[in-house]
Computed example of a mutant assay.
Amino acid sequence: METRLVPYETLSLVQKQQLDTLQVHPEQLAYSGDIYCALNSLLVNPNPGAIKGFALLADDLPVAFLLLKRPPCLPHWADEHSATLHALQVDRHQQGRGFGKACLQALPAAALEAWPQIKGLELSVDADNVAAMGLYLRTGWVDSGEAYKGRIGYERRLALVF
């Protein structure tokens, strides 16, 4: 099965409709949100170019989605020379097949194509989200050692420097 991470705006109408059906497990909603919230933040953003959406296609079928943000949409904890990862979601029917890992492996090239000036990627992950934390660390992200009080509990900051 061939996978590729593509910008949201390059999806066909059918692929966008398929993406609208993406669902995460209910227990993951607190961490990643749902596809409607992610697409809403992408499509109603008043700062064009500050938020970009990407879909992971598996044989042309959208199986995952994520957002990247740049100034002025960066969170307070992020370095201005980075892009931040948000709302990484793998469809619940497709989980366990390596699609989250495929997203993270393809992400640096996609981010640099979108914003050649960035020096790396950053994210914030709930410390209790063991599965996500393990995935990020296994794919080369580095824990900054800093934690802060987030929406749910304490969150860790991770970075991937280019």
Rank of each mutant, 00 (worst) to 15 (best):
S12H: 14
E113K: 13
P62Q: 05
L57G: 11
S41N: 12
G98T: 07
A50R: 08
G33Y: 01
Q89Y: 01
A38D: 04
P116L: 07
D34E: 09
V44G: 00
F99G: 10
P72F: 07
N40K: 06
H76K: 09
A64R: 08
K69G: 09
L57S: 14
L56T: 11
H86N: 14
E9P: 02
A87D: 04
G98I: 06
Q15W: 10
E146H: 08
D59K: 04
L29Q: 00
L11M: 07
Y31N: 00
K16P: 00
S32M: 02
K101S: 10
L137F: 02
P26D: 14
C103G: 05
K101R: 15
T21R: 10
L42M: 02
L39I: 06
A106N: 08
H86D: 07
P62G: 01
S124W: 01
V14Y: 11
L104Y: 08
V63I: 08
F99I: 02
L107R: 01
L66F: 01
A131Q: 14
L29I: 05
L39A: 04
V142C: 14
W77M: 11
L13W: 06
A106F: 03
L112S: 03
L85V: 15
Q23V: 02
Q105Y: 03
V142R: 13
P46D: 09
N45Q: 02
D79T: 05
A111P: 01
V125K: 04
A30H: 03
V14S: 14
A132T: 03
E27G: 02
A64W: 13
G98K: 06
N47E: 14
V130L: 12
L104M: 14
A114R: 09
G53P: 09
H25N: 08
P26G: 13
I35T: 01
S144K: 13
Q95Y: 04
C37E: 06
D59I: 01
P75K: 09
A110P: 03
H86P: 04
H81I: 01
L121P: 08
Q15Y: 11
V44E: 06
A111D: 06
V63D: 04
L121Q: 13
Q18G: 07
T139C: 11
P48E: 15
L104A: 05
P72C: 05
P108Q: 10
P48H: 13
Q94H: 09
L74H: 08
P26I: 13
D128Q: 15
A55K: 00
C73E: 15
S41R: 15
W141N: 08
L22Y: 05
L112G: 02
P75M: 03
D91W: 06
N40D: 07
L13N: 04
L11F: 12
S32C: 13
V130Y: 04
V142A: 13
F54C: 03
L107P: 04
L88M: 15
